[in-house]
């Protein structure tokens, strides 16, 4: 038998909606890419208010965890993990604000104010973590909660300021 005669039978591919779907997706991607470009150049105050919102969520989480720990509802391991996770989120927001490139004086002021408040939050987290780690001598759990509560107030003030702009 002539080996070259091996004929290939190409199975006809059903034209499924799936393949049509991918084409439509491509068509949808073009305007979407534009949307990304515009989204990246969002204003400073917008980015700051997002960061403030995220940090405020993290601080609120940490406060709930501390209170639950005080009430004996949460184990140390779970409280510590929750604080770590919340701190990580606050850090991410702080990095985002740090990396902003403000356009004018006003934006620079906003960024500076935000960084001050976010630093206060970071300090609050440090107190909270210390209160969890030390059973004697260090700050107590309620000290930690107080530090976070102050941070939260500062965040609220800031978000009102940024929001009104």
């Amino acid at each position: 038998m002539d080996p070259g005669a091996a004929r290939r039978l190409e199975a006809k591919v059903l034209n499924t909606p799936a393949s049509a779907a991918s084409r439509k997706l491509l068509a949808a991607l073009a305007p979407a890419a534009l949307a990304v470009l515009t989204a990246c150049s969002g204003s400073t105050s917008e980015s700051v208010s997002t960061a403030v919102q995220d940090t405020s969520s993290a601080v609120a989480t940490a406060r709930i965890a501390l209170r639950q720990d005080l009430d004996g509802k949460l184990t140390r391991a779970a409280t510590a993990t929750t604080l770590d996770d919340a701190l990580k989120e606050a850090q991410t927001s702080r990095d985002a604000v740090l990396k902003l490139s403000p356009a004018g004086q006003e934006d620079r002021d906003t960024q500076k104010q935000a960084l001050e408040v976010l630093d206060q939050c970071a300090a609050g987290f440090a107190t909270a973590r210390a209160s969890l780690a030390s059973d004697t001598g260090g700050p107590s759990l309620s000290d930690g909660d107080e530090a976070l509560a102050d941070a939260q107030d500062a965040l609220d003030d800031l978000s009102q300021k940024v929001g009104s702009k």
Binding site: A5, A6, R7
Partner: peptide, 10 residues
């Protein structure tokens, strides 16, 4: 994956 047929070359 495919089939082989006998017969004349392509």
């Amino acid at each position: 994956d495919d089939l082989e047929l006998s017969g004349p070359a392509l």
